[in-house]
């Protein structure tokens, strides 16, 4: 079990680094949501199911959606400028 948790933490760190490193904002957001997802699994293993649920639904779900809404707005704007 400890191996699995270590693996989760490693994935989390890599995803966090990737989120900071990606040039593409969409990729960053997906990496962020991966961090939240891993965190939520770890919370579950740490016997905190309430926090795990909150983290999964808000951190991995809604926050990502809100970020994507924001990014889609910036992207569309750029495309508009290109076509003009």
């Amino acid at each position: 079990m400890i191996v699995f948790q270590t693996f989760l933490v490693l994935v989390m760190i890599v995803a966090a680094l990737a989120a900071a490193g990606f040039r593409d904002l969409l990729g960053s957001v997906i990496a962020c949501s991966l961090v939240s997802l891993m965190a939520s699994i770890i919370f579950y293993f740490l016997q905190a199911p309430d926090v795990a649920m909150a983290e999964a639904s808000i951190g991995a779900g809604l926050t990502t959606a809100i970020f994507i809404f924001a990014i889609s707005k910036t992207k569309r704007h750029e495309e508009n400028e290109k076509t003009d």
Partner: peptide, 17 residues
């Protein structure tokens, strides 16, 4: 059971999403 208002509310909002 685990969960509650905040978690349930977030799930409902994801439905609207």
């Amino acid at each position: 059971s685990p969960g509650g208002g905040f978690q349930g509310g977030a799930v409902i909002a994801s439905g609207f999403l």
